[in-house]
Structures are given as C-alpha cells and as structure tokens.
Amino acid sequence: MKVIFLQDVKGKGKKGEIKNVPDGYARNFLFKKGLAVEATPANLKELE
C-alpha cells in the first residue's frame, strides 16, 4: 500500500515521503498512530 508519511518514522520514511509499505503495517500501526495516510489522489493533491 502506498502511504504518505506525516511524521518521520525511524527506518521506514521521513515526513512528506511517499512509499510502499505492507498493508497490515499501514493499517495497524501507521494509520492508527497518525504517522501516515493512504496515498489517494485527494491526499496527494493536498501534499502539493
């Protein structure tokens, strides 16, 4: 799953980066803790 990092995550990505991460990791950790959002067209547009 492609995500946009909202904060630096040690060993995974830095704020503003767009990266592919495993689905479970994204849903169960990154999204729940507010560290990233899914890289949807709407979210990508907001990032610009």
Rank of each mutant, 00 (worst) to 15 (best):
Lys33Thr: 08
Leu30Ser: 00
Val37Pro: 00
Ala26Tyr: 10
Arg27Lys: 13
Asn28Val: 08
Lys15Ala: 10
Val21Tyr: 06
Leu35Asn: 01
Gln7Met: 13
Val3Gly: 00
Ala42Lys: 13
Pro41Glu: 13
Lys45Gln: 11
Phe5Lys: 00
Lys12Asp: 06
Glu17Trp: 04
Lys19Gln: 07
Asn28Met: 11
Ala42Pro: 08
Val9Tyr: 03
Asn28Phe: 12
Ala42Tyr: 09
Pro22Ala: 11
Gly13Trp: 13
Gly16Met: 05
Ala39Pro: 03
Lys45Phe: 11
Gly24Val: 12
Gly24Leu: 13
Ala42Met: 07
Val37Glu: 05
Gly11Gln: 04
Thr40Arg: 05
Leu47Glu: 07
Lys12Thr: 09
Lys33Ala: 12
Glu38Gln: 10
Ile4Thr: 02
Lys33Ile: 09
Lys2Glu: 10
Val21Lys: 00
Glu46Arg: 09
Phe5Thr: 01
Gln7Val: 15
Gly24Thr: 14
Glu48Pro: 10
Asn20Ser: 13
Val9Met: 04
Lys2Pro: 08
Gly24Trp: 15
Leu47Trp: 15
Leu6Gln: 04
Glu38Leu: 11
Pro22Val: 07
Phe31Val: 07
Val37Thr: 07
Ile4Ala: 03
Lys15Trp: 04
Gln7Lys: 15
Glu48Trp: 10
Val3Leu: 02
Val3Asn: 00
Ala42Glu: 14
Thr40Asp: 06
Lys14Tyr: 12
Lys33Phe: 15
Pro41Lys: 11
Glu46Met: 12
Leu6Thr: 09
Phe5Glu: 00
Leu35Ser: 02
Gly24Phe: 14
Gly24Arg: 14
Asp8Gly: 06
Leu35Asp: 01
Glu48Asn: 14
Ile18Ser: 03
Asp8Ala: 07
Ala26Val: 07
Gln7Asn: 09
Glu48Asp: 12
Lys19Phe: 06
Ala39Lys: 02
Pro41Ser: 12
Thr40Trp: 04
Gln7Leu: 10
Lys2Asp: 12
Ile4Lys: 05
Asn28Lys: 12
Met1Asp: 02
Asp23Glu: 15
Arg27Thr: 10
Gly16Asn: 08
Lys45Gly: 09
Lys19His: 10
Gly24His: 14
Ala26Asp: 05
Ala42Ser: 12
Leu6Gly: 01
Pro41Tyr: 11
Lys32His: 09
Phe5Pro: 00
Leu35Trp: 13
Glu38Lys: 09
Gly13Val: 06
Asp23Leu: 15
Gln7Ile: 11
Gly34Met: 09
Lys15Asp: 02
Glu46Asp: 14
Ala26Lys: 02
Ala39Ile: 05
Lys2Leu: 15
Lys2Asn: 12
Asn20Tyr: 15
Leu44Glu: 07
Val3Glu: 00
Asp8Tyr: 09
Val21Ile: 07
Glu46Ile: 10
Lys10Arg: 13
Glu17Ile: 03
Gly16Pro: 00
Lys32Trp: 08
Val3Phe: 00
Leu6His: 02
Glu38Met: 10
Phe5Tyr: 08
Phe5Ala: 00
Asn43Lys: 09
Lys15Met: 08
Asp23Val: 15
Glu48Arg: 06
Glu38Asn: 05
Val21Trp: 03
Lys10Glu: 14
Leu6Asp: 00
Lys15Gly: 04
Leu47Met: 12
Met1Glu: 03
Ile18Gln: 05
Gly13Ala: 12
Ala42Trp: 07
Val3Tyr: 01
Gly34Lys: 11
Ile18Lys: 03
Phe29Pro: 02
Phe29Ser: 05
Ala39Phe: 11
Asn43Glu: 07
Ala36Ile: 06
Leu6Lys: 06
Gly16Glu: 02
Glu38Ile: 09
Lys45Ala: 15
Glu46Gly: 11
Thr40Pro: 05
Thr40Phe: 06
Leu44Ile: 14
Gly24Met: 13
Val37Leu: 12
Gly13Arg: 01
Phe29Met: 06
Lys14Ile: 09
Lys10Trp: 14
Asn20Arg: 14
Leu35Lys: 03
Val21Arg: 00
Gln7Gly: 06
Leu35Phe: 10
Leu35Thr: 02
Tyr25Pro: 04
